[in-house]
Amino acid sequence: MELGSSDQRTSSKREREEYHVAHKIPSGDTPYVRAKHAQLVQKDPEAAIVLFWKAINAGDRVDSALKDMAVVMKQLDRGEEAIEAVKSFRGLCSKQSQESLDNVLIDLYKNYNVQKCGKVEEQIELLKRKLRQIFQGEIFNGKPTKRARSHGKKFQVSVKQETSRLLGNLGWAYMQKPNYMAAEVVYKKAQMIDPDANKACNLSLCLIKQGRYDEARAILNDVLGGKLPGSNDYKPRRRAEELLSEVRSRQPQPDFSDLLGLDMDDDFVKGIERLMNEWAPSRSKRLPIFEEISSFRDRLTC
Protein backbone atom coordinates (compact mmCIF):
# COMPACT_ATOMS: atom_id res chain seq x y z
CA MET A 1 0.00 0.00 0.00
CA GLU A 2 2.76 2.40 0.92
CA LEU A 3 4.60 1.64 -2.31
CA GLY A 4 1.45 2.16 -4.34
CA SER A 5 0.77 5.46 -2.56
CA SER A 6 4.31 6.59 -3.33
CA ASP A 7 3.89 5.71 -6.99
CA GLN A 8 0.58 7.59 -7.11
CA ARG A 9 2.15 10.69 -5.55
CA THR A 10 5.04 10.54 -8.02
CA SER A 11 2.64 10.11 -10.93
CA SER A 12 0.42 12.95 -9.70
CA LYS A 13 3.43 15.23 -9.28
CA ARG A 14 4.64 14.40 -12.78
CA GLU A 15 1.18 15.12 -14.21
CA ARG A 16 1.07 18.48 -12.48
CA GLU A 17 4.51 19.34 -13.85
CA GLU A 18 3.48 18.31 -17.36
CA TYR A 19 0.31 20.39 -16.99
CA HIS A 20 2.26 23.51 -16.02
CA VAL A 21 4.76 23.01 -18.83
CA ALA A 22 2.02 22.45 -21.41
CA HIS A 23 0.15 25.62 -20.37
CA LYS A 24 3.35 27.62 -19.79
CA ILE A 25 2.43 28.56 -16.26
CA PRO A 26 4.60 28.29 -13.13
CA SER A 27 3.74 25.86 -10.36
CA GLY A 28 2.41 26.85 -6.95
CA ASP A 29 -0.59 28.69 -5.56
CA THR A 30 0.59 32.29 -5.37
CA PRO A 31 -1.33 35.30 -6.78
CA TYR A 32 0.96 35.37 -9.81
CA VAL A 33 0.45 31.67 -10.56
CA ARG A 34 -3.32 32.08 -10.22
CA ALA A 35 -3.18 35.12 -12.52
CA LYS A 36 -1.33 33.14 -15.19
CA HIS A 37 -3.83 30.31 -14.81
CA ALA A 38 -6.72 32.75 -15.31
CA GLN A 39 -4.96 34.28 -18.32
CA LEU A 40 -3.78 31.14 -20.13
CA VAL A 41 -6.03 28.29 -18.96
CA GLN A 42 -9.36 29.85 -17.97
CA LYS A 43 -9.05 32.53 -20.70
CA ASP A 44 -10.49 35.11 -18.29
CA PRO A 45 -8.48 38.31 -18.82
CA GLU A 46 -10.51 40.41 -16.38
CA ALA A 47 -9.85 37.94 -13.56
CA ALA A 48 -6.20 37.76 -14.60
CA ILE A 49 -5.81 41.53 -14.25
CA VAL A 50 -7.27 41.47 -10.72
CA LEU A 51 -4.87 38.69 -9.74
CA PHE A 52 -1.89 40.43 -11.35
CA TRP A 53 -2.72 43.48 -9.21
CA LYS A 54 -2.73 41.24 -6.14
CA ALA A 55 0.61 39.77 -7.15
CA ILE A 56 2.14 43.25 -7.51
CA ASN A 57 0.76 44.38 -4.14
CA ALA A 58 2.01 41.18 -2.50
CA GLY A 59 5.48 41.50 -4.04
CA ASP A 60 4.99 38.22 -5.92
CA ARG A 61 7.11 38.18 -9.11
CA VAL A 62 6.47 41.87 -9.59
CA ASP A 63 8.60 42.18 -12.74
CA SER A 64 6.64 39.53 -14.59
CA ALA A 65 3.28 40.45 -13.05
CA LEU A 66 3.50 44.08 -14.21
CA LYS A 67 4.58 43.19 -17.76
CA ASP A 68 1.98 40.43 -18.10
CA MET A 69 -0.78 42.65 -16.74
CA ALA A 70 0.09 45.36 -19.25
CA VAL A 71 -0.12 42.82 -22.09
CA VAL A 72 -3.57 41.66 -20.96
CA MET A 73 -4.78 45.24 -20.58
CA LYS A 74 -3.61 45.97 -24.12
CA GLN A 75 -5.62 43.00 -25.38
CA LEU A 76 -8.70 44.46 -23.70
CA ASP A 77 -8.10 47.87 -25.32
CA ARG A 78 -7.16 49.38 -21.98
CA GLY A 79 -3.92 50.84 -23.31
CA GLU A 80 -3.98 54.09 -21.37
CA GLU A 81 -4.51 52.22 -18.10
CA ALA A 82 -1.64 49.88 -18.97
CA ILE A 83 0.68 52.81 -19.69
CA GLU A 84 -0.12 54.44 -16.36
CA ALA A 85 0.33 51.12 -14.51
CA VAL A 86 3.80 50.54 -15.95
CA LYS A 87 4.86 54.12 -15.25
CA SER A 88 3.51 54.01 -11.69
CA PHE A 89 4.82 50.62 -10.56
CA ARG A 90 8.06 50.11 -12.47
CA GLY A 91 9.87 51.49 -9.44
CA LEU A 92 8.98 48.26 -7.63
CA CYS A 93 10.71 46.20 -10.33
CA SER A 94 14.33 45.16 -10.57
CA LYS A 95 16.97 47.11 -12.44
CA GLN A 96 17.32 44.23 -14.89
CA SER A 97 13.66 44.53 -15.93
CA GLN A 98 13.71 48.25 -16.77
CA GLU A 99 14.76 47.81 -20.40
CA SER A 100 12.02 45.27 -21.05
CA LEU A 101 9.50 47.58 -19.37
CA ASP A 102 10.61 50.35 -21.73
CA ASN A 103 9.88 48.00 -24.61
CA VAL A 104 6.44 47.27 -23.17
CA LEU A 105 5.76 51.01 -23.03
CA ILE A 106 7.01 51.52 -26.59
CA ASP A 107 4.66 48.80 -27.79
CA LEU A 108 1.75 50.30 -25.84
CA TYR A 109 2.43 53.80 -27.16
CA LYS A 110 2.65 52.51 -30.73
CA ASN A 111 -0.61 50.57 -30.60
CA TYR A 112 -2.64 52.99 -28.49
CA ASN A 113 -4.06 56.32 -29.63
CA VAL A 114 -1.43 58.40 -27.85
CA GLN A 115 -2.60 61.51 -29.64
CA LYS A 116 -6.08 61.13 -28.17
CA CYS A 117 -4.80 60.74 -24.61
CA GLY A 118 -2.09 63.40 -25.00
CA LYS A 119 0.92 61.12 -24.64
CA VAL A 120 2.76 61.79 -27.91
CA GLU A 121 5.49 63.80 -26.21
CA GLU A 122 5.99 61.04 -23.62
CA GLN A 123 6.38 58.54 -26.45
CA ILE A 124 8.89 60.74 -28.28
CA GLU A 125 11.00 61.33 -25.18
CA LEU A 126 11.08 57.61 -24.35
CA LEU A 127 12.19 56.72 -27.88
CA LYS A 128 14.89 59.38 -27.87
CA ARG A 129 16.17 58.10 -24.53
CA LYS A 130 16.33 54.54 -25.89
CA LEU A 131 18.21 55.73 -28.97
CA ARG A 132 20.62 57.69 -26.78
CA GLN A 133 21.27 54.56 -24.71
CA ILE A 134 22.09 52.62 -27.88
CA PHE A 135 24.44 55.34 -29.13
CA GLN A 136 26.18 55.39 -25.74
CA GLY A 137 26.53 51.60 -25.66
CA GLU A 138 24.34 51.14 -22.58
CA ILE A 139 21.95 48.57 -24.09
CA PHE A 140 24.11 46.25 -26.19
CA ASN A 141 27.21 46.56 -23.96
CA GLY A 142 29.48 46.86 -26.99
CA LYS A 143 28.15 43.67 -28.59
CA PRO A 144 26.68 43.52 -32.12
CA THR A 145 23.56 41.63 -30.97
CA LYS A 146 21.49 40.96 -27.87
CA ARG A 147 18.80 38.48 -26.89
CA ALA A 148 15.26 39.81 -27.02
CA ARG A 149 11.82 38.40 -26.32
CA SER A 150 8.55 39.03 -28.11
CA HIS A 151 5.25 37.23 -27.53
CA GLY A 152 7.02 34.61 -25.45
CA LYS A 153 9.66 33.84 -28.10
CA LYS A 154 13.37 34.57 -27.74
CA PHE A 155 15.48 35.77 -30.64
CA GLN A 156 18.65 37.70 -31.44
CA VAL A 157 18.40 41.33 -32.50
CA SER A 158 21.26 43.41 -33.90
CA VAL A 159 22.18 47.00 -33.09
CA LYS A 160 21.20 47.96 -36.63
CA GLN A 161 17.78 46.30 -36.36
CA GLU A 162 17.00 47.81 -32.96
CA THR A 163 18.10 51.30 -34.01
CA SER A 164 15.99 51.15 -37.17
CA ARG A 165 13.00 49.83 -35.20
CA LEU A 166 13.18 52.66 -32.67
CA LEU A 167 13.63 55.26 -35.41
CA GLY A 168 10.58 53.82 -37.17
CA ASN A 169 8.56 54.18 -33.98
CA LEU A 170 9.88 57.72 -33.54
CA GLY A 171 8.86 58.59 -37.09
CA TRP A 172 5.37 57.25 -36.40
CA ALA A 173 5.19 59.34 -33.21
CA TYR A 174 6.08 62.49 -35.14
CA MET A 175 3.34 61.65 -37.64
CA GLN A 176 0.82 61.66 -34.79
CA LYS A 177 1.67 65.24 -33.80
CA PRO A 178 1.48 65.72 -36.87
CA ASN A 179 4.98 66.83 -37.83
CA TYR A 180 5.53 65.23 -41.23
CA MET A 181 8.81 66.97 -41.93
CA ALA A 182 10.42 65.63 -38.74
CA ALA A 183 8.92 62.20 -39.45
CA GLU A 184 10.40 62.29 -42.95
CA VAL A 185 13.91 62.92 -41.61
CA VAL A 186 13.63 60.11 -39.08
CA TYR A 187 12.20 57.59 -41.56
CA LYS A 188 14.94 58.37 -44.06
CA LYS A 189 17.57 57.71 -41.40
CA ALA A 190 15.84 54.45 -40.46
CA GLN A 191 15.79 53.37 -44.11
CA MET A 192 19.49 54.11 -44.46
CA ILE A 193 20.24 51.81 -41.52
CA ASP A 194 17.86 48.90 -42.18
CA PRO A 195 15.36 49.47 -45.01
CA ASP A 196 12.00 47.73 -45.24
CA ALA A 197 8.74 48.12 -47.14
CA ASN A 198 6.62 49.15 -44.16
CA LYS A 199 8.80 52.13 -43.23
CA ALA A 200 8.99 53.03 -46.92
CA CYS A 201 5.20 53.32 -47.01
CA ASN A 202 5.24 55.57 -43.95
CA LEU A 203 7.95 57.72 -45.55
CA SER A 204 5.89 58.04 -48.72
CA LEU A 205 2.89 59.12 -46.63
CA CYS A 206 5.01 61.88 -45.07
CA LEU A 207 5.88 63.09 -48.55
CA ILE A 208 2.27 62.92 -49.70
CA LYS A 209 1.21 65.06 -46.74
CA GLN A 210 3.79 67.65 -47.87
CA GLY A 211 2.54 67.60 -51.46
CA ARG A 212 5.71 65.94 -52.79
CA TYR A 213 3.96 63.41 -54.95
CA ASP A 214 6.76 62.52 -57.37
CA GLU A 215 9.10 61.56 -54.51
CA ALA A 216 6.35 59.53 -52.87
CA ARG A 217 5.55 57.79 -56.15
CA ALA A 218 9.20 56.76 -56.63
CA ILE A 219 9.34 55.16 -53.17
CA LEU A 220 6.03 53.34 -53.66
CA ASN A 221 7.20 52.03 -57.02
CA ASP A 222 10.25 50.57 -55.26
CA VAL A 223 7.95 48.74 -52.85
CA LEU A 224 5.70 47.42 -55.59
CA GLY A 225 8.73 46.56 -57.69
CA GLY A 226 10.04 44.27 -54.94
CA LYS A 227 13.17 46.31 -54.31
CA LEU A 228 12.86 46.46 -50.50
CA PRO A 229 12.81 43.77 -47.81
CA GLY A 230 9.20 42.84 -47.08
CA SER A 231 7.97 44.13 -50.45
CA ASN A 232 6.29 40.84 -51.22
CA ASP A 233 4.35 40.73 -47.94
CA TYR A 234 0.64 41.29 -48.37
CA LYS A 235 0.11 44.23 -45.97
CA PRO A 236 2.87 46.57 -47.21
CA ARG A 237 2.03 45.80 -50.86
CA ARG A 238 -1.64 46.51 -50.26
CA ARG A 239 -0.79 49.73 -48.45
CA ALA A 240 1.63 50.79 -51.19
CA GLU A 241 -1.11 50.25 -53.78
CA GLU A 242 -3.55 52.35 -51.75
CA LEU A 243 -1.03 55.17 -51.27
CA LEU A 244 -0.11 55.13 -54.96
CA SER A 245 -3.80 55.44 -55.80
CA GLU A 246 -3.99 58.42 -53.43
CA VAL A 247 -1.00 60.01 -55.17
CA ARG A 248 -2.71 59.63 -58.55
CA SER A 249 -5.92 61.17 -57.25
CA ARG A 250 -4.15 64.15 -55.69
CA GLN A 251 -1.48 64.89 -58.26
CA PRO A 252 -2.67 67.30 -60.97
CA GLN A 253 -2.53 65.89 -64.47
CA PRO A 254 -1.08 67.95 -67.35
CA ASP A 255 -3.71 69.77 -69.37
CA PHE A 256 -2.44 71.60 -72.42
CA SER A 257 -5.87 72.33 -73.90
CA ASP A 258 -5.78 75.94 -72.78
CA LEU A 259 -2.45 76.42 -74.58
CA LEU A 260 -3.68 75.27 -78.00
CA GLY A 261 -3.63 78.04 -80.58
CA LEU A 262 -1.36 80.31 -78.52
CA ASP A 263 1.55 81.95 -80.30
CA MET A 264 5.06 81.20 -79.14
CA ASP A 265 5.18 84.47 -77.28
CA ASP A 266 4.37 85.83 -73.82
CA ASP A 267 1.01 84.02 -73.67
CA PHE A 268 2.73 80.67 -74.14
CA VAL A 269 5.41 81.43 -71.55
CA LYS A 270 2.83 82.65 -69.06
CA GLY A 271 0.79 79.49 -69.61
CA ILE A 272 3.79 77.27 -68.89
CA GLU A 273 4.66 79.29 -65.79
CA ARG A 274 1.10 79.04 -64.51
CA LEU A 275 1.04 75.26 -64.95
CA MET A 276 4.43 74.88 -63.29
CA ASN A 277 3.18 76.88 -60.32
CA GLU A 278 0.13 74.64 -60.04
CA TRP A 279 2.13 71.40 -60.27
CA ALA A 280 5.11 72.35 -58.13
CA PRO A 281 4.91 71.09 -54.52
CA SER A 282 4.95 73.78 -51.91
CA ARG A 283 8.32 74.31 -50.24
CA SER A 284 7.19 77.06 -47.91
CA LYS A 285 7.30 74.81 -44.86
CA ARG A 286 10.66 73.16 -45.39
CA LEU A 287 12.76 75.66 -43.43
CA PRO A 288 11.52 74.84 -39.89
CA ILE A 289 12.66 71.25 -40.22
CA PHE A 290 16.29 72.29 -39.95
CA GLU A 291 15.55 73.59 -36.46
CA GLU A 292 13.84 70.30 -35.63
CA ILE A 293 16.77 68.27 -36.98
CA SER A 294 19.31 70.30 -35.01
CA SER A 295 17.26 70.10 -31.84
CA PHE A 296 16.74 66.36 -32.30
CA ARG A 297 20.46 65.75 -32.90
CA ASP A 298 21.51 67.90 -29.94
CA ARG A 299 19.16 66.12 -27.56
CA LEU A 300 20.38 62.71 -28.65
CA THR A 301 24.05 63.60 -28.24
CA CYS A 302 23.81 65.60 -25.03
Results as ranks from 00 to 15, higher is better:
P45M: 09
D29L: 04
L101V: 08
A35Y: 09
E15N: 13
E125K: 06
G225A: 08
D68L: 06
S295C: 12
K24Q: 12
K177M: 13
Q176A: 05
Y112W: 07
D68E: 11
I272N: 02
M192E: 14
A47C: 04
I272Q: 06
Y187D: 07
Q75E: 15
S88P: 00
N113F: 04
K74T: 13
Q42R: 14
N141S: 06
Y19S: 01
K189C: 01
L224S: 04
L207V: 09
V159R: 01
V247M: 13
K160E: 13
D258G: 03
K188V: 06
I56N: 02
L287D: 11
L224G: 05
N221F: 00
A183S: 04
F89V: 02
E162F: 06
E2I: 11
S295Y: 12
S150G: 08
V41E: 02
V41G: 00
L259Y: 07
F52N: 03
R283G: 07
Y112H: 14
D263R: 14
S100N: 08
F296T: 06
R250W: 12
P252K: 09
E99A: 13
S6D: 11
P229T: 03
V185L: 09
Q8L: 14
R217Q: 15
G152M: 02
N169M: 07
S204V: 00
V223F: 00
N57Y: 13
H20K: 03
K130S: 13
A47Y: 01
D222E: 07
E242I: 07
K13L: 13
K128W: 01
E18H: 08
Q96H: 11
G118E: 02
I208T: 02
V104N: 02
D77E: 13
N202R: 09
M73N: 00
P144S: 06
A200Y: 02
A200Q: 02
K199G: 00
